[in-house]
Amino acid sequence: MSGIISVFFGSIILASMAILIHLISAYHPYHRPVPLALSSLATMSLAVLALSLINDGLSYLEIVRSSVSESISSLLNILPIIYVSIAIILLKVSLQNRIEEPL
């Protein structure tokens, strides 16, 4: 059970980190990233705090490293489902021919 909770908060930290990296990498003058960065930082901090309550004796860095890497492993398991879905759609597209409609 603790593994599932750890992965849940880890994925929140991972997604918040990804949003922060995205905001920094894709910054442009027509964008106002500060409110979004603050909300992501707040979400990430709350998740780290929640994990620190579950994992006594571990530093914040160790908590982040272990929970985020566990969540990455879990999220990668979704990829095969997405991949097979796209392959099925493309199989249909490859096989079907549009019926010619006389104008």
Binding site: F8, S11, I12, L14, A15, S40, S74, L75, N77
Partner: peptide, 12 residues
């Protein structure tokens, strides 16, 4: 774990 992580990402 996969469902849990998907929920975490969705919430974020």
């Amino acid at each position: 774990k996969t469902v849990s992580s998907a929920l975490g990402v969705t919430l974020t």
